[in-house]
Simulated scan of single mutants.
Amino acid sequence: MSASTAPAARSCLVTGGNRGIGRAIAEDLARHGDAVAVTYRTGEPPAGLLGVQCDVTDGAQVDAAFKTVEERQGRVEVLVANAGITRDSLLPLMTDEEFISVIDTNLIGVYRVVRRAMRGILRARRGRIILISSSVGMLGEAGQTNYAAAKAGLIGFARSLVREVGARDITVNVVAPGYVQTDMTAGLPESVLAKFIEHTPLGRPAAPAEIASVVRFLAGDEAAFLTGAVIPVDGGASMGH
């Protein structure tokens, strides 16, 4: 394909895109020709991508991050809401801060970034919104009532938004990874990792790139008629949910 007929790069934003699944998604979109920005709280952004420091629990920081992205690479056409945290504890021992902080980042943080992205997406009458949930949001997991509640909430959030914006050629989908081999999961006890593998029919963790390829599909033209979907990428762990 000649330069004159090549598709223009889209402006993409991946929250929490400096490590793990988010980084894999951002780098995959960039390799396939998109202009990609990432938000991050700590550390450094991936080389070659626009990095914007942002805490999604702060609405002012979210607004400032979008303004930077809009100035540098245009309005956001593809939003991947990936930023998230865990604060695991059995419910009788869980503090208010542990519960609320996870909800604020993993659910309300998504609300903040999606609401801000909608300014440009609604005006353009075109866009792709992809939320990164978890199989835990469908299956549940001991010690993760806060995390599971937030990730399950993303499904209702996405499907309600579909009914608001679908007529404007805007799709909203949810990707629900299972056990993914990242720096974060590498720190889990062997007994926990063995349990994940035992309940995964494919018998192994996912690589971050396997999540990224599904996100790229949802962001592309091939998925133009796919919206309101929850796609488990978990090796079969959440079958039937």
Rank of each mutant, 00 (worst) to 15 (best):
3 A>V: 09
4 S>H: 10
4 S>Q: 10
7 P>S: 14
9 A>Q: 03
10 R>V: 05
10 R>P: 01
11 S>I: 08
13 L>G: 09
13 L>V: 11
14 V>T: 06
15 T>G: 04
16 G>Q: 11
18 N>V: 01
22 G>W: 04
24 A>R: 07
26 A>N: 11
28 D>N: 08
28 D>Y: 12
30 A>Y: 05
31 R>K: 12
33 G>I: 10
36 V>G: 03
37 A>E: 02
42 T>S: 13
46 P>N: 04
47 A>V: 08
48 G>V: 06
51 G>H: 10
51 G>W: 09
52 V>E: 00
52 V>R: 03
52 V>T: 00
53 Q>Y: 09
54 C>Y: 00
58 D>N: 15
59 G>W: 09
60 A>I: 04
61 Q>V: 04
63 D>M: 13
65 A>R: 12
67 K>M: 08
68 T>F: 07
70 E>D: 01
71 E>M: 10
71 E>H: 13
73 Q>W: 04
74 G>T: 03
75 R>I: 07
76 V>S: 02
79 L>V: 12
83 A>G: 04
84 G>Y: 07
85 I>D: 01
85 I>N: 04
87 R>P: 04
90 L>D: 01
91 L>F: 15
92 P>C: 10
96 D>S: 14
98 E>A: 14
99 F>V: 06
100 I>Q: 14
101 S>H: 12
103 I>E: 06
105 T>P: 03
106 N>E: 01
107 L>M: 06
108 I>P: 00
109 G>C: 08
109 G>D: 03
111 Y>G: 02
113 V>N: 01
118 M>I: 05
118 M>E: 05
120 G>D: 02
125 R>V: 07
130 I>H: 14
133 S>R: 14
133 S>G: 13
136 V>N: 10
140 G>F: 14
141 E>D: 14
145 T>L: 05
146 N>I: 02
151 K>M: 08
158 A>N: 00
162 V>D: 00
162 V>W: 03
164 E>C: 05
166 G>S: 11
171 T>V: 12
176 A>L: 04
179 Y>D: 01
180 V>D: 00
186 A>Y: 01
188 L>K: 02
188 L>D: 00
188 L>P: 00
190 E>D: 09
193 L>D: 01
195 K>W: 14
196 F>P: 01
198 E>N: 10
198 E>D: 10
198 E>V: 07
202 L>W: 13
209 A>Y: 00
210 E>T: 08
210 E>R: 09
211 I>N: 01
212 A>C: 05
216 R>T: 09
216 R>N: 07
219 A>T: 11
221 D>S: 15
222 E>F: 13
225 F>D: 12
229 A>W: 03
231 I>G: 09
232 P>V: 10
234 D>L: 14
234 D>V: 13
237 A>L: 13
240 G>D: 00
241 H>T: 15
241 H>R: 15
